[in-house]
Design a protein around this nucleic acid. Structure first.
Lengths: 117, 117
DNA sequence: TTCTATTTGCGAACCGTTCGCAAAATCATC
DNA sequence: GATGATTTTGCGAACGGTTCGCAAATAGAA
């Protein structure tokens, strides 16, 4: 599917509107509705993850299912994977100190990638 | 101001609509517009931080300005502060491994607090 | 080919949020 | 207090991203 391919190649979070625009650019025209439906489908499949940006717009990123964290470049928007082995330690600490049972977490890092710094 | 007090006492992320409802409950009626305006004011002051939840709704939390991370209880919604001294190490690692200049980050932990687990 | 099931596009509806504007409240000055 | 200027408020319309309903188009099965 073209939408999945666009996301895979982009390596950054894209909004539905942005994806729609890119489809038009490669003259594979589909309606915005279809873009939303496809994204929802891909999300349900676990092929795509989503986040809402500061403006409240939902954006989508191709993902392979396993959990890792993202470093998002403020320059080009490119997303790199980061792994965080320290999380296990956190889980432990949170439990001990706060009595908080950690079930999931999300982390995002913002800065500038090698090319944009 | 009543809105700031509500947020301070709630110790959880509340939506504008929820705050509006709580104001009505204590018969301090103001319009939704005023709630939004006040929240924007408090945010600009740094007295309130905001996040957008899964549904895309903006929610607000009382905060004291300095940066720390949050453990959000899936049971009661209560937010606890977590500190993460490991971040400095991360910054170092990201730079070394990925050539990524870390400027800011956000982390959220989800689980169950002592009372709700 | 024919009938059925699925996917698509369109436009309206939805919902949280913002905006414009006029009414109301507040404040400063006399 | 009365007067006029400034600020805050409420209302309703507008906005923008997303969802929904429905009928037309397409794909699949028999």
């Amino acid at each position: 599917m073209r939408i999945a391919a666009i996301l895979r190649e982009a390596r950054q979070y894209l909004s539905a509107a942005e994806i729609h625009a890119r489809l038009e650019r490669e003259s594979a025209e589909v309606s915005l509705s279809t873009v939303y439906r496809t994204l929802e489908f891909l999300r349900a499949q676990g092929a795509v993850s989503q986040r809402t940006d500061e403006a409240g717009e939902t954006t989508y990123l191709s993902c392979d299912g396993d959990h890792h964290h993202h470093a998002i470049c403020r320059g080009c928007g490119r997303v790199e994977d980061v792994d965080c082995e320290a999380i296990d330690q956190f889980t432990e600490d949170l439990d001990q100190h706060n009595g908080f049972l950690l079930e999931s977490h999300s982390m995002e890092f913002f800065g500038r990638c090698r090319a944009c710094r």
